[in-house]
Amino acid sequence: MLATSMTASTVFGAQGIADVNHVRQLIRQGVWQSHTSGLAGDHVQGNLVILPEAEANDFLRFCQRNPKPCPVLAVSEPGQPQLPTLGQDIDIRTDLPKYHVWRNGEMVGAISDITDLWRDDLVSFVLGCSFSFEFALLEAGLRLRHIDEGKNVAMYRTNIPTQAAGLFHGPMVVSMRPMLAKDAIRAIQVTSRFPNVHGAPVHLGDPSLIGIADLQQPDYGDAVSIKAGEIPVFWACGVTPQAAIVQARPAFCITHAPGAMLITDLLNQQLASF
């Protein structure tokens, strides 16, 4: 039975977390193919974009011009599946629970191993992920609804434009966490310390102001309950490149499936700016 039909507590224990090496091995073996929110919580997680070298420079400039949704943690050499600055044992072809395969801007497959698709010209980009600052939020005593409900975080395309670079452009994608106002203020303080994993929120309150019509209809991830007195708090999201890929329509591309991240050897505290 695959983990897509199992709970985190079944696979990883009652708390749904585990040693990073144990997590990575179960992902590499295909045992866990679901989202990674709450797993190996003190370790940095990363979004993934893999492109042919011919498009890599444009994409790197896109990230540099849009550091809030696209903070670069590592870039591989062409054809190299290893990312030693993120972990000596990492193999980018096997170490995410699920990958999306794109051709000409359309997602054509969702698989758990991209070894058979690997090419000598592919460049891997790992971008900071909000799952990293979630650990700091939890340590600060803030509850996160999607974790409490056992769901992936809710993500939405917005009307906030990114700065174009070459082929790449499109709307910013955001992730949303409902909070009481006092908790939102604390969350701003906590996440401001982590600019390499999206930093402080980009919007609070009325979702229509950033082009979101219905919070119960996320573009990616799962809808969560919003309780009386809570406001939605929105952070820039590393799924933004996938919206740009739809616009750029590169002939070939591989990304993480939303919520299914690379778990690195880095500790979240190593990315804190103060």
Score class of each variant (00 low, 15 high):
L180V: 12
R61K: 14
L209K: 15
D116Y: 00
I212K: 05
A18K: 02
C253N: 02
R186E: 10
P207L: 15
P201I: 06
G150N: 07
L271E: 10
V49R: 08
G87M: 10
A136R: 06
A248H: 10
M179W: 13
R28K: 14
C129D: 08
A136D: 11
A164H: 07
I245M: 12
W118F: 11
Q64P: 01
D89S: 15
P171Y: 05
P178I: 03
S175Y: 06
E139V: 05
G16E: 05
T158A: 00
V239I: 15
Q217G: 03
I27H: 07
V202Y: 05
P69L: 09
A140W: 04
G205M: 09
R193E: 15
G205K: 10
F274P: 01
P71L: 10
A181K: 13
I92M: 13
L204P: 09
C253D: 01
I17P: 00
D120H: 03
W32D: 12
A257K: 11
S112F: 01
R145G: 02
P207I: 14
T115D: 02
G46T: 00
K98V: 12
P258I: 09
L167F: 00
I210V: 08
L48N: 02
G221Q: 03
A228V: 13
P69Q: 09
L266I: 05
I114D: 03
R61E: 15
Q82L: 07
H169Y: 11
V239S: 04
S192L: 06
V224E: 05
T158H: 00
R24T: 11
F274I: 01
L262Q: 05
G105P: 03
A236W: 09
A74C: 08
R143L: 14
